[in-house]
Amino acid sequence: MYGGGYVFCEPDVHGQPDDPERLAEFEARIDRGEKIEPQDWMPYEYRRQLIRLIEQHAHSEIMGALPEGAWITRAPGFKRKLALIAKVQDEVGHAQLLYSAAETLGKSRADMVNDLLSGKSKYSNVFNYPAKTWADVTVIGFLIDAAAIVNQVANSKGSYGPYCRALERICYEESFHLKQGYDAFVALATGTKRQREMLQDAINRWYRPIIHFFGPPDNESVHSKQLMRWKVKMASNDEMRNQFLDAYVPKVLELGLTFPDPELRKDPQTGRWHYGDPDWAEFYRVINGDGPCNAERLSARRLAEENGRWIRQAIMNPQQKFTIPFA
């Protein structure tokens, strides 16, 4: 998991203009399908937006482990507990891979971690909602992971080498996450009346955050076009949302479960899914800090950071300095 719904920065009008000759060379390389490596020349805006994207993705992995991590102690049964521990460990491992990829662009890990802790950096909005019951954990493990995979598979075909390599490894590990989530989801869906009610309640609460997951509807801004040209953004928000709905809505409906949206349907002519107004104002409210769990998530992250400080300092070797990863 957990990439998706990235918020790119507004173009920096004060940035250095790029050398047109090198820019043309760079764009030709991307057009040929070649990857860009850390030592290559790259446009100012490309570097800036990629740092932002990969850093947000890394933070989402860390913060995304929190709602599920809280359920490890109460997972129903030994097998579910083992799977959940393994999954949460994988997610934190994904964050490490992604921080390394972002570092190759020149922002140090310590700066990224501090920007998360201070509340400056964003992460996927979906983790600012509570996992109230075990059914929520199954909805996250199945549907949110599925949504993240749609996004990550698209991004793994992007232009920046270190990010693509990290995503290949991540996508390989995600296949187990999705399967264990689906397994736990189906166990509730085919279980007792009480279990089905619990699952339906969780779907009802997660439906809107899931629609929000891929970000607001496409705007045909010049900015977004440039990011797609440079293969930073690989598919539009609406394209990815549609791909997700197409693959996963039927899997939920076939279990006799429903979505709390009377307008949700596929247009047989266009193949596009139509959904009711998901209140984009809420999306912006939550991403700007005012969601049900923003404070709680940040607090849990800060607690972990503080509790780990003494050991990081104890094993610190003051002679050694941070170096940018090689690839």
Binding site: A70, L298, S299, A300, N317, T323
Partner: peptide, 25 residues
Amino acid sequence: DPRLQRVQRHATEFHLLEQPEEWQT
């Protein structure tokens, strides 16, 4: 989250390290 239930603290207690540990790569 049981970890948060155990500790009765609030977010305002937190202080960022100005120079966090920078490990080698």
